[in-house]
Design a protein around this nucleic acid. Structure first.
Lengths: 141, 141
DNA sequence: TATATTTGTATCAAGGGTGGTTACAAACAG
DNA sequence: CTGTTTGTAACCACCCTTGATACAAATATA
């Protein structure tokens, strides 16, 4: 399987829930729209639940709905809630400590990595789920 | 999936070359510092060569050196030169076009993705290889 | 020219992450 | 009590990244 698309799936699912207000939506319905398996959606909903973004109910007439208003959820929260890939990974195996570069490169890269992550969070936090939902609605043809 | 550490490796290798000025450095020597296989390094150098960041020579006394001064190379160029992972991937399988959300969500996500990428490039472009080299040197203990 | 060195590249194996699928217990409405 | 739906475990298939071996091509040096 290719790169990690959980963030995309999460935004998609949450936009669906935003559209349906307080109505419970079944994982099967979400899976149809995302074009995947219901279990994959439920796995994702589990993560979103832990982040207090959705609430789910078992049993007949069960399903999921948003835990908060769409304008109180921003994309940065969603990004943090799911297992997203990193912008770039640090060395798989630690560099040689016998080399003046190898000895310190990890610390420098780690510092840059944190700065990039901060930038991503900052940019994502500018969008609320409501914004995204409206963008999707406006694109409706 | 094994996380992609090519950007980290690339910065590491280029910092090594920056340290050695115009001297040819062998892939074997670079591999020792990075703590990996020489072929892995040569694969990476091939990409950096295509991006006009390094020059390599075959044969005895061969090796690689920077194609430009370290202060004329910024991290954004390096990021673009290597096969880095994406911040997040779009849907693996296209969402359902029968759903008002599914129909347009990809376009919206694509738009956000491009904005995030732009932000990353902007932040990375603030660092030159010379900056990184100096940060590593200063951290020397 | 002959030799040793080094890169460039093809190929294969190992390891691990991601998503797809099935199965089943638990919760819940009616 | 019955049917529905979630939560979760287990397993599989696919594919990406890295590690490793092998060998041709290029090149400096004797």
């Amino acid at each position: 399987m290719a790169a990690n698309s959980q963030f995309s799936m999460a935004v998609h699912v949450l936009a669906m829930l935003a559209r349906s207000k307080d109505e419970n939506i079944k994982s099967d319905c979400l899976a149809s729209s995302v074009n995947t398996n219901a279990v994959v959606v439920r796995r994702l909903l589990g993560q979103l639940n832990q982040a207090n973004l959705v609430v789910s109910q078992t049993g007949a007439n069960g399903g999921s709905r948003l835990a908060r208003c769409p304008n109180e959820i921003n994309l940065s929260e969603i990004y943090k809630a799911v297992n997203c890939g990193e912008v770039f990974a640090l060395h798989a195996k630690s560099p040689s400590k016998d080399c003046p570069i190898g000895k310190n490169i990890e610390a420098v890269l780690g510092c840059i990595h944190r700065e990039i992550d901060k930038g991503i969070s900052e940019k994502l936090s500018r969008y609320t789920l409501q914004n995204v939902f409206e963008m999707v609605e406006q694109g409706k043809s």
